[in-house]
Write a protein that binds this DNA or RNA. Structure first.
Length: 502
RNA sequence: GGUCUCGUGGCCGAGUGGCUAGGCUGAGCUCUGCAAAAGCUCCUACAGCGGUUCGAAUCCGCUCGAGACCUCCA
């Protein structure tokens, strides 16, 4: 029996607001699309949380044996600042301000984004399409929507006709809105407006003479609207209806609502079966965002240069910190919380190092039956918790319990040879698999250095010699001096020594 | 103003009708040349007020408080 059948996944579908059993369209395969970053600026930690959430989703589904096609786009054109009618393209604006080609801006921040993803051990998606690479398709779908009477051209721009769409479908199905309410709130249309109704949104925007990002189209030179790129790229690579669409909570309306409308309008089919939204990272209870000026950049976090931080934290400690809460809850970012997370993370990582070196001789009959059963139960619970809406917080609680058992094995409280061989093997495989493959937690990079490790081991040998000679002055000096450098020596049984980084 | 979410012990955070989540901090014990690490034990909370129920942190209502979306945002 496959793991995916043994541990069926349930997830909270934003479309229904309920936890549902996950069933993929093609058995054994999963298509997932996630809205990626707009590359006109550095990604901050709030962005990272979202990408981490879906990294976990992809990792776990793969761990269960699904073949996952994970598409995450790069938005390199089309986001408008301020109102959609007079707004300016973010990338074009940035390019003008810095006197660069727009693609120089895009390249710079795309690389920065990739670097941050690597630091946090967020795996790359299967396909990472860009909006500018799909201009043709975006024009085609716009033409299609015009032909179906769901869009109209106005002064070189094209808008989606929300009211028309709403006659046969429900605009607002995802965000729980109705168009009457939407019509009552927000900005009023004025004479300058090209839109017929204020709830209509742009599929194609006419480029003003000074606008530097522009492409020819049946309606003149212009550029695509923001929402259409995701519809085009998701359906191109995953089909007209696919399994999972993810993104940050703040994209629910209008972005994802518009995607549903465009996709449904163009194909007659609902584009997505399961919508997943990750919640916001907050600072002092407020959403972390660029416009509020309370965002943290990863490099400020690592270096500890941000005003709210006492010191720096490694990317893995931060990854662990984020996994301690459920993706659907807001998570508050603070110095104290990070400090606590760092300690907890080290505990798990130390246990990981220990279990990797442990082996069962095999063949023995279990003498401590209860303990063996306990190991099997813990392994089982890891899967149950992750299958329950990717509950990383609950999974970590189990991993902490497992790490205590690992330390027991190490200290001899729980002798490995007396454990059931199969139970031990499953336990070991599960702990390592969940740490490394599912949660993506690994040693901090700078500490995973062979030369450094070799040097420390050399000093450990010297200290062992000093101790057997009862030269405690020297052995304490080695330990104390290493401690000053952030390396903690720990004496074990039988003159064995281990170390960890602080 | 409209729509929605949340309020859990010193801190962070799961849970979501009955059985101590977990991490960090603090106290103690064991182990140890001394440490560190580790193991064990203790500190048992669900904003307030009503209601439903044999039983509610969990469901319903009200009050107070915080936040998100409605304009770009992950």
């Amino acid at each position: 029996m496959k793991e995916s059948e043994k541990y069926p996944v349930s997830l909270t579908n934003s479309l229904t607001g309920k936890k549902e059993l996950f069933k993929s369209i093609n058995p054994g395969f999963v298509g997932m699309y996630v809205c990626g970053p707009t590359v006109y600026n550095d990604v901050h930690l709030g962005n990272v949380r979202t990408f981490l959430t879906f990294d976990i989703v992809a990792r776990y589904l793969r761990f269960l044996g699904y073949k996952v096609r994970y598409v995450r786009n790069i938005t390199d054109v089309g986001h408008l600042e301020n109102d959609a009618d007079e707004g300016e393209d973010k990338i074009a604006k940035k390019a003008r301000l810095e006197q660069l080609e727009p693609m120089e801006v895009v390249k710079h921040y795309t690389e920065g984004f990739h670097e941050v993803m690597r630091q946090f051990n967020i795996l790359p998606p299967s396909i990472e399409p860009s909006a500018t690479g799909h201009i043709v398709e975006q024009i085609q779908i716009t033409q299609n929507l015009i032909a179906k009477g769901l869009a109209y051209e106005s002064n070189g721009s094209v808008y989606f006709n929300v009211r028309k769409y709403n006659q046969d479908h429900h605009y607002g199905i995802l965000s729980g809105r109705n168009i009457e309410e939407l019509m009552e709130s927000g900005r009023e249309l004025d004479n300058q407006d090209e839109k017929r109704e204020k709830i209509d949104f742009a599929l194609w925007k006419k480029a003003s003479p000074y606008h530097i990002m522009r492409w020819p189209s049946p309606w003149g030179d212009g550029f695509p609207g923001w929402h259409i790129e995701c519809t085009v790229m998701s359906t191109k690579y995953l089909g007209e209806t696919f399994d999972i669409h993810g993104g940050g909570m703040d994209l629910k309306f209008p972005h994802h609502e518009c995607e549903i409308a465009q996709g449904t309008g163009a194909t007659g089919k609902s584009p997505v079966n399961y919508w997943l939204h990750s919640n916001m990272l907050t600072v002092n209870g407020q959403k972390m965002s660029k416009s509020l000026g309370n965002s943290f950049l990863p490099r400020e976090l690592f270096a500890g240069t941000h005003a709210l931080l006492d010191r720096g934290y490694g990317p893995m400690a931060v990854r662990f910190f984020m996994l301690q809460s459920h993706y659907s809850s807001t998570l508050d970012f603070s110095n104290d919380a990070l400090q606590a997370a760092e300690k907890g993370f080290k505990k798990l990582i130390n246990a990981l190092g220990l279990i990797k070196k442990m082996e069962h001789a095999g063949g023995s009959v279990s003498e401590i039956d209860g303990a063996s059963k306990d190991l099997s139960r813990l392994a089982h619970e890891c899967f149950l918790n992750m299958s329950d809406d990717f509950n990383t917080a609950k999974t970590l609680a189990v991993l902490f319990e497992m790490s205590a058992r690992i330390n027991d094995m190490k200290s001899g409280n729980l002798p490995i040879e007396k454990l059931d061989s199969e139970a031990f093997t499953t336990f070991r495989k599960t702990y390592i698999g969940f740490m490394e493959n599912v949660l993506g937690l690994e040693e901090e990079k700078e500490q995973n250095d062979e030369v450094l490790k070799g040097t420390i081991n050399l000093l450990i040998e010297l200290r062992k010699k000093a101790r057997t000679d009862k030269n405690f002055v020297l052995s304490d000096k080695i330990r104390d001096d290493l401690k000053k450098l952030g390396i903690q020596i720990k004496d074990g049984k039988d003159s064995e020594m281990t170390y960890s980084f602080e």
